[in-house]
Design a protein around this nucleic acid. Structure first.
Lengths: 147, 147
DNA sequence: GGCTGTCGTAACGATAATTGTTACGGCAGA
DNA sequence: TCTGCCGTAACAATTATCGTTACGACAGCC
């Protein structure tokens, strides 16, 4: 599985915005989040754009612009984020259709589709159990660097 | 998630070999399997090579060469295949280390690592519940093409 | 009304993984 | 010795992600 970090970065951004707002600020800028995640602001804006389309965050333009949460961290789950930023299914079928004249080639795709659906359903269930509130709690529970 | 079909093709190959052997044949060739999966024999050989390293199949060289199962279909699970052909973890961390001076940047990786471990453990458990015997059964249960 | 900071998005290159393909040496049975 | 297939290297094509630059649009503020 080509590992992509989209879910990780998106969770990072949401946790950052959530904590920042709890410290009294109204909006967070993509530049601030990018500095924390050590990446480019455009990468953050792209990801947050997808989260906005999913109704998880809001953006404000003009002067004093930036991003804010559209929902409480406790009501956002990793499944919400996953569905917002991950396009395709977990496992793919053959890229060319198998030989339909062969018994296995004919039955393999319906068989695997059913099996994959069950597995992905379980994955979604697990993702839905983790709220961004818990993510932020775990983040803050990380041991501080010893001096 | 960039969808890769490695697990699907590997399961296809195993089911094909298993059925072929039940029909009385000793070994299956990569060319036969490739014809069923509608791909190149080298792709099959590469995948089966990984399954061989995992102890799931055996290969014979020389004349009358080919592939055979090293274990019964009923004792091979999708988890065995998954571990044999999928290299990395399901979700990746940041490709560059986040800002350790930021509270979120410092705590995000340990937090996500723990969460991802739990989720992947559940995924493995689900994959382990499906044997290749069941895959073949589902394959054969697919409705035949109406004439 | 202009200035300024940030979003929104297009465009492009770099990188990496997967897949398909050709090629060729090596092995073992007939 | 001949033949069929494995085992593996090498390379191109395709695709996704990520980083980067650039620039127009927007809205508050002076």
């Amino acid at each position: 599985m080509s590992a992509n970090s989209r879910l990780t970065i998106a969770a990072h951004a949401l946790a950052w915005i959530g904590l920042y707002q709890r410290q009294g600020h109204e909006v967070a800028t993509s530049e601030q989040i990018a500095a924390s995640a050590n990446t480019n602001p455009v990468v953050i804006r792209r990801l947050l754009g997808e989260l906005r389309r999913a109704g998880l965050v809001e953006s404000r333009r003009g002067a004093g612009a930036g991003w804010s949460l559209a929902r409480e961290l406790g009501s956002i789950t990793l499944l919400d984020v996953y569905e917002a930023v991950e396009p395709g299914p977990l496992f793919a079928m053959h890229r060319t259709t198998p030989d339909q004249g062969c018994v296995v080639g004919h039955g393999i795709q319906p068989a695997m589709r059913g099996i994959y659906q069950d597995i992905e359903e379980t994955l979604r269930h697990e993702l839905a159990r983790v709220t961004l509130e818990k993510v932020l709690r775990d983040v803050l529970a990380a041991p501080r660097q010893p001096l």
